[in-house]
């Protein structure tokens, strides 16, 4: 069974079609990137898949569970790390992790084990007692993704996880995302072409709510007849390569 199967997903806001009859699948353990210029429909797609927005028509199935008919089951399978750093600023790093354990109903023992595991994975030991609001952007992003992983999701949505980070912080975060590959299905939205090319197993490019292409980075470059992924993206979005 695919981790995600999207069947004719459409979202309309009055006269605007934000996502138009989207059809694709994502394999289990795959790191799948959604690319597109602003307004392409990436964030709306992620919001529908994470049950934050109801589709106008169509459906999507996460591990076979419908986002329309079984959103509670879908929510138990997923976690979201939103574009803005979604941390509780007045709580310490540990308290933020405890908050997520608590809202998922973990026992004290499981909570401690999970926090230790994620603290080590994300290298949060040195900042564990610091207030989240006082951390740098890079550390806040790390914490934000660690909070998303608390629930041991089957599918993790990362919405522009490295936006605004410096080169080193981005490189560190890439290492962490790479280390998650295989265990968790990851849906990544990003504006950084290099990030998508380096990290992704497959990439979907969207424009005006429509899916233009869905393939590996190498095959997309082949389709666009270029060795440069950014150039391939531009050609496909501009309609030069079909």
């Amino acid at each position: 069974m695919d981790a995600i199967r999207i069947e004719g997903l459409t979202k309309k806001y009055k006269d605007v079609v934000a996502v138009d009859d989207l059809r694709l699948f994502v394999r289990k353990g795959e790191l799948f990137s959604l690319l597109g210029v602003n307004g392409a429909g990436k964030t709306t797609t992620v919001k529908m898949l994470s049950c934050l927005t109801q589709p106008t028509s169509g459906d999507a199935f996460l591990n076979g569970k419908s986002i329309c008919k079984d959103s509670a089951a879908v929510k138990s399978l997923i976690a979201v790390s939103p574009q803005e750093t979604a941390v509780a600023p007045g709580l310490s790093v540990r308290e933020n992790l405890e908050l997520m354990c608590g809202v998922h109903g973990f026992s004290k023992g499981k909570q401690n084990a999970k926090i230790s595991e994620l603290t080590e994975l994300f290298g949060l030991e040195s900042v564990i007692k610091k207030k989240a609001g006082k951390l740098s952007g890079g550390w806040q992003r790390r914490l934000s993704i660690a909070m998303a992983l608390i629930s041991e999701p089957d599918t993790l949505f990362l919405d522009e996880p490295t936006l605004g980070l410096d080169v080193l912080a981005r490189s560190d975060l890439w290492d962490i995302i790479r280390s998650l590959k295989g265990d968790v299905t990851i849906i990544l939205t990003t504006h950084y072409m290099e990030e998508a090319e380096v990290l992704s197993d497959r990439i979907a490019i969207m424009k005006d709510g429509k899916l233009l292409i869905c393939d590996t980075a190498d095959n997309i470059k082949g389709t666009a007849k270029t060795d440069n992924f950014e150039q391939a993206f531009v050609r496909i979005v501009k309609g030069v390569a079909k």
Binding site: S50, C51, L52, A72, K75, S76, I78, A79, V80, S81, P82, Q83, E84, T85, A86, V87, A88, P89, M100, V103, H104, G105, M147, A148, S151
Partner: peptide, 17 residues
């Protein structure tokens, strides 16, 4: 208002709360 602005609520809406 701050939770809405920071997307913390968006994150929490995807939990069993």
């Amino acid at each position: 208002a701050k939770d809405r602005g920071s997307s913390l609520l968006q994150r929490l809406y995807t939990t069993p709360l």
